[in-house]
Design a protein around this nucleic acid. Structure first.
Length: 129
DNA sequence: ATATTGACAGGCA
DNA sequence: GTGCCTGCCAATA
């Protein structure tokens, strides 16, 4: 086949410049994030770890900010290791994140997920890595 | 091409 | 427990 890569997405192709270098990191992040069950949350590091990019948690957050609205990715279910809604400021409006979480029976107190440890969903464990 | 930043995480004082 | 430093890898203020 010609040197042409079939890309499942076309909206963010402009954003995912790295995809041209075999780095589908962003796509993977979105795929995993979409598998987070309702009423559960996970951390950037957990996703990064699942993707084998442990230590690159920042990239996960970066990917989240690049999520096209068309790819229904529950970014509100992704928080930092402290269970804090570190990315709420990037929502629209910021209160939306808490709203969405609360709608899924996830309590948020002081920008922090209540009983985070119990609500935590680790892809590496739940998906059985 | 270089420097700075970024929705993080782990280690150490 | 808190606070500062470093590592991670890509995007661009």
């Amino acid at each position: 086949m010609p040197a042409k890569k079939a890309k499942p997405v076309k909206e963010e192709q402009a954003r995912v410049t790295t995809a041209d270098k075999h780095f589908h990191f962003f796509e993977d992040v979105w795929s995993v994030a979409r598998q987070i069950p309702k009423g559960r949350v996970t951390s950037y590091g957990a996703i990064a770890n699942y993707l084998g990019a442990k230590g690159s948690a920042r990239m996960v957050g970066w990917a989240m900010s690049s999520v096209p609205a068309k790819l229904k990715v529950p970014a509100h279910r992704v928080v930092n290791r402290n269970g804090m809604l570190s990315g709420k400021a990037h929502f629209n409006p910021p209160e939306k994140m808490e709203q969405l979480l609360k709608k899924e029976r996830i309590l948020v107190e002081k920008d922090k997920v209540v009983d985070f440890k119990n609500k935590f969903w680790d892809p590496a464990t739940e998906l059985g890595l």
